[in-house]
């Protein structure tokens, strides 16, 4: 780690003032990602602002519109096991529990989960070119070892993927991210929070320097009857997704009234395409329809030397997860495939 100063703050305003809009001042909450990045000298900080004492953001509350507000400082574990979440947003609970390990989920916060950085090998190796870590240095992954990399939304500058599981569910649930900054409060639809790499892969998301995530709102619709999170990876647990899928259905009289499908492990952000969801609307839950939706969702997918298999794998995972969502009781721990 480089040598930084450290300060604790007890409310959001203090945090904003300590951050002072400077990119070298960083927030630490759970610490599971920032401390890792600091130790590898990938991230450098002048000052760490410890927001753990900010109690106003550390809870789950019911909203008047029937939705739920997840405090940014609430831990991933407490969120996943919260009775309201388990009952009304089991898809979110499942996705969180598919990520990392129990210890990390006990530390990691909801806000921090959104701020995770990629696990791209080259991003993590400070001695190789990487546009995300060192803008303008080039992307080593495109011509390198890219088995874990993106098949959707890449640019010629970056093919890294966003590693979160929780955020795949939040994307599917159409959450909203509440943000406080020097100029007051604002919010972003979840789909607007994370970015595609484009020409500036060093910028992961649309949170500005000096801003703080205060909470995440879930709308009333939680797809608690028909949901599934499926995560495919090189071992059964404690590893990042090669492909993951969050699926929620509202089913009425045997046909799909509303569908949500989001993909993880395939792009620089959780991948959603409402065309695929609209396609399923008012259709029967059949393999044929699921396959057609998968095809729409994967439109434009592009593979590289080692990751082309992800296109077919993602397609099959989408279809399987649609079936698993029809029968959520069959789901296994760690979001392993069932049925």
């Amino acid at each position: 780690m480089n040598n930084f100063s450290y300060t604790k703050v007890s409310n959001v305003q203090e945090a904003i003032s300590e951050l002072d809009g400077d990119i070298r001042n960083k927030i630490v909450a759970g610490g599971t990602n920032i401390n890792d990045l600091l130790k590898y000298f990938i991230t450098k900080a002048d000052k760490l602002v410890d927001i753990n004492p900010v109690s106003e953001n550390n809870s789950i509350i019911r909203l008047d519109n029937g939705g739920i507000r997840l405090g940014a400082l609430h831990t991933n574990a407490d969120t996943a096991y919260d009775p309201i979440i388990e009952e009304r947003y089991p898809l979110l609970s499942r996705a969180i529990l598919a990520g990392a390990s129990a210890q990390i989920r006990n530390m990691a916060t909801n806000g921090g989960n959104l701020m995770q950085r990629t696990r791209c090998y080259y991003f993590y190796d400070i001695n190789t070119p990487c546009n995300k870590r060192d803008p303008g240095s080039g992307c080593s992954a495109i011509q390198g070892y890219n088995r874990i990399h993106a098949i959707l939304g890449q640019s010629e500058n970056c093919i890294a993927v966003f590693p979160s599981d929780m955020c795949v569910a939040l994307a599917a649930l159409s959450a909203t991210v509440n943000i406080m900054g020097p100029n007051g409060e604002r919010n972003l639809a979840f789909a607007e929070f994370h970015r595609l790499p484009g020409d500036t892969p060093n910028i992961d998301n649309n949170l500005k320097h000096g801003e703080v995530i205060t909470s995440i709102d879930l709308p009333r619709q939680g797809f608690e009857k028909n949901y599934s999170y499926l995560k495919l990876r090189d071992r059964s647990s404690y590893s990042f997704a090669l492909v993951s899928v969050a699926t929620g259905f509202e089913i009425e009289n045997g046909s799909i009234k509303e569908a949500r499908i989001a993909l993880g492990g395939v792009a620089h952000k959780p991948w959603r395409n409402t065309e695929a969801e609209d396609f399923l609307k008012d259709k029967e839950p059949t393999r044929e329809n699921f396959t057609a939706a998968a095809t729409i969702l994967l439109e434009g997918a592009k593979g590289y030397q080692q990751n082309a298999f992800k296109i077919e794998l993602a397609k099959r995972a989408i279809i399987r997860n649609c079936f698993m969502a029809l029968n959520p009781e069959s789901q296994r721990p760690g979001a392993k495939p069932s049925l």
């Binding site: 090998y121 080593s140 088995r147 071992r235 590893s239």
Partner: peptide
């Protein structure tokens, strides 16, 4: 089924020198 050290021959180096990306089995396996 799991473990493998990945080499990038452009750089002549191992790219997953850690326990997150060098996969040894977990209890669930």
């Amino acid at each position: 089924l799991h473990e493998e050290t990945i080499t990038d021959h452009n750089f002549g180096k191992y790219m997953n020198p850690n326990l997150a990306e060098y996969h040894i089995p977990v209890h669930a396996d």
